[in-house]
Simulated assay, not measured.
Amino acid sequence: MALLSLRRRRVVASPPPALHVPARPPLEPPAQLLRRLEFRVVRRLDGFLFGDYRGLFYGPSLDLAEVREYQPGDEVRRIDWNVTARSGRLHVRQYREERELTAWLVIDTSPSMNFGTRRVLKRELAREFAGVASLVITRHGDKIGAITFGPGSGMAPPRGGRAQALAVMNLLSRGARGGPDASTQPTDLASALTAVERTLRRRSLVFVVSDFLETAPPGAGGWTGALGRLAQRHDVVAVRVSDPAERALPDVGGVRMRDPETGEELWLDTSDPGVRAAHARLVGERDMALKRALQSAQVDLLDLGTERDPVGPLLRFAAVRRGRRR
């Protein structure tokens, strides 16, 4: 976690007694989770979108129809630089929508996702988003597949129907059973994105669901380039799941911190204003680096927090993408 990047001069000299760690709640069964999401989330989204489900996730059209000259108001990202270079005049790519949409969920199941201090853990929030996306997409006849990376990684090939939504939930349930004491594997987002790029043959809508907390910042670990290559061929959305305690270090005195992906431990005096200020700077720097990396790859960001259900963020995200299509 990001907390481990703080300087060790702030570590408490005499650590207090070991903290009591409450038992982790059992995972909600996949079928029960789907029923809850359909009743509490998907129906609410339908009420706002009036059945226009493609307005929720669907971004730019995916099939190239023609290339035409640039007109004022056209998106810069649609400029075809090869045709522009040959003709000497700006040309843009014109798309038509596919009748059938194929979507993929690329979901982080690394140990850092087993963290949460509010409504749910990050891994559970990722499952909720995957369930909503699967229900929304498959109920209209389109296909969705899933790939997980981290302990218990696996794949569910793209199919349609409610049975496929349940298959995606079962895959995520298997990938989320590792706890804090399970194998410690650092998140390797670059390798995961490269594997996805090699796997996907048809142009698709791809959701990369992760907390995007790596030991190396964006760019240094190489995943920025892999994301850019993936976004060149597919419509990619980065879904970041986070917890308020990761964004703002609470003032709770001396606390033992453990990196779930390396096993490294240290004590921090969270009542020290200098420690909290250093953490705030680190979080700000990582946020800026992530946003720059996504903007460079022309990838949209959907932010989800463990303190609230995903309805509000999904509606705001849909409004942005629908406005862009207009």
Rank of each mutant, 00 (worst) to 15 (best):
A126E: 04
G219N: 10
S191P: 01
E98I: 00
D243F: 08
L282R: 14
T109E: 00
R10M: 14
R326S: 08
A318R: 09
H234A: 07
A130P: 05
P313E: 05
R8H: 14
Q32T: 12
T138E: 01
V208D: 03
G47E: 08
L27K: 04
R96Q: 11
N114A: 11
G88Q: 11
Q185T: 14
G254Y: 02
L90C: 04
L125I: 03
R54Q: 14
Y95K: 10
R292N: 09
I147T: 09
L227Y: 05
V275L: 06
K291R: 15
P310A: 06
G175M: 00
R247V: 13
P157L: 01
F129G: 05
S191K: 08
S242M: 12
D74S: 11
L6A: 12
R203P: 03
R40G: 03
V42S: 10
A278L: 15
L62E: 09
Y58V: 14
V12E: 05
G150I: 02
L62G: 07
K291N: 08
T138L: 02
G274R: 14
G145E: 05
G145N: 03
F48I: 14
A165T: 00
T224P: 02
L34I: 08
G274D: 15
K143T: 09
Q94Y: 03
E128W: 02
M1K: 11
T262R: 09
D243S: 04
A167Y: 00
L290W: 01
R256V: 00
E128C: 01
P180L: 12
L172Y: 01
A297Q: 07
D309S: 12
L230V: 11
L3N: 07
A2W: 13
L135N: 04
T194C: 00
A176M: 09
L49K: 10
A318T: 07
G55R: 14
F207M: 03
R8W: 05
T138D: 00
A182S: 14
G154V: 02
S61D: 15
G253H: 05
V311P: 00
V237G: 06
D63T: 12
L121I: 03
A277T: 13
D52I: 11
T184N: 02
G161I: 01
P22R: 11
A192C: 07
D188W: 08
R174F: 04
S242V: 13
R54F: 04
